[in-house]
Design a protein around this nucleic acid. Sequence first.
DNA 1: TTGAAAGCGCTAACAA
DNA 2: TTGTTAGCGCTTTCAA
Lengths: 341, 341
Amino acid sequence: MESHSRQVTLDEVAARAGVSRSAASRVLNDAPHVSKAKREAVRRAIAELGYVPNATARALASRQSGSVVLAVSAEDPAVFADQFVAEVVVGILSVLEETDLELTLVTATSSRGQQRLEKLLRSRTTAGVMLMSMHGDEPIARLAEDAELPVVFGGQPLTFEPRYYVDADNRGGARLATEHLIGIGRTRIATITGRMDEAAGTARYKGFQETLAVAGLDPRRVVHGDFSEDGGQRAMTELLARHPETDAVFVASDQMAIGALGALTAAGRSVPSDVAVVGFNDIPMARHTTPPLTTISQPIRSLGREMARMLHAVLNGEHPSPLILPTRLVFRDSAAGPSCR
Amino acid sequence: MESHSRQVTLDEVAARAGVSRSAASRVLNDAPHVSKAKREAVRRAIAELGYVPNATARALASRQSGSVVLAVSAEDPAVFADQFVAEVVVGILSVLEETDLELTLVTATSSRGQQRLEKLLRSRTTAGVMLMSMHGDEPIARLAEDAELPVVFGGQPLTFEPRYYVDADNRGGARLATEHLIGIGRTRIATITGRMDEAAGTARYKGFQETLAVAGLDPRRVVHGDFSEDGGQRAMTELLARHPETDAVFVASDQMAIGALGALTAAGRSVPSDVAVVGFNDIPMARHTTPPLTTISQPIRSLGREMARMLHAVLNGEHPSPLILPTRLVFRDSAAGPSCR
DNA sequence: TTGAAAGCGCTAACAA
DNA sequence: TTGTTAGCGCTTTCAA
């Protein structure tokens, strides 16, 4: 883990410019109290010597850090290949690119990951943390608090409302989806929920229930899934067994919806004429299923962007309010209206 | 960018344990020359005080760094949502998880990104670099060399052979694909290439050409694409116009192949009976196209893993050899044999 | 085996 | 507006 190259120091810059190190340091951080002439001289020296400050020394002396971490609570680094997470990362990076913050990626839940994260947070290398996809009660949140680092949540944890978070309007999205199914004339509407130990799962379920209640429809056709494709398939099979009269289903994630489409096909039900399907997330594959999937789109990349912006604001001493991002219905064939029957 | 929490220092640990700071430091780095008794005392003190070493101070004093960066040469952080890149990240993380190295993500090509990367590399915060998806001549490679940091390439740059790299056997994969098309009896075989300013693009094209040459078939049905879905669609349309007799096509990426399938359908050609299609990469969506896409699978996650392993080895003073990872044919309906006609 | 002392390269009081 | 002086918390000689 060695580094070799000859480092140009601030002292050398100062010497070259014929000023004190403090003066050079002031110029570097464009602090006041430096004459125009010296400022210029230092700038020139920096350019000539190709000086780049040693970030480590700087961090040590100033007790500040130029990097933030994104911690995703998952067993396996494979989460970062998840379309959803990947898009969040993209959003975050696109904002950080405009700042001087670097992004470090960690998984928070694996046996070793937990320890590593704690070490990372307490080793004073990090200015702040973004936390994602929390199921249930999260020790990680406490971890960050212990380290007294600013934390921004992506999605809300189930057990408490954090000070800073960005979330999608899951409940509203579920309402949109369910209203759409009602709107195209379905009356025996079911749902396959996500994990009920995640806020996104419960919120979408609530949105579903309340919409049916308002419409005076029976909200009891419910099977619980786990957000996975396989889980969706199993859940759909179970749903057909328990409620064969079902003519529409709101599935709490596209991944599950894909599994559900498979189960429907296997059961000889055609989509959407026998059973209309609406998913949630609008993952890229949703356009390519058979039939293409009607779904609720959430602005995932914006979620990442807003998380990064919020953290940045907190690091600058501001106190931003939590943010709920809107969702919208993306209309495709899997829940087309009567005209398409 | 402030941090607040009270830091426990090594001095406090030493005091608590009743030893000198040097002794405590030795225990921390399990260096020799510490009596068993003291070692134990220090260990206890560390546990009791919940001491976590300040990584920044450590890095400054030891001139070592515990983080490596993955730089992807792209204009836009959106590359990190690319399935391919995301899988590489996963592979890298899965290896780094076992070490004490953290991963920092950067895009290398955006106007600002280039500067940021240079700063990052020269600011002595980083132990080493992994570089990905280089088109043509890469200033970034020079950058890292200037900083005298170990660099591992993922994929080979076009203009020079780096000391350390991991690549997939693109040429061999293209050969597999083309041989398969010949094997199912096609004779008027075309290709849609990738970007010819990327090594992967040229290598796959070469594999295609040489296989047709060996088989005595005409290798001149060629349209150049750009690895994108839209590009694939355009290329296929052009191919059909210029070589309407084409009965098979090797498409240098699945993304392009998806576009090509669209163009074929639009042109009323059925796949595979009129035109057989083989892609490259085996992205998740390949299983879900109509018809499902025969393709060349490369061990993307392994690519990431091996990059991380290689960098780790270099950081430990070893000199690993470049690595070429094998590819294999994944057989699906888009290039089924005659029996399926 | 031990500890004292001297930095790592920078920032931040403080005094001038 | 300047420069001097202490550190930041750790590692690493060096002499004991």
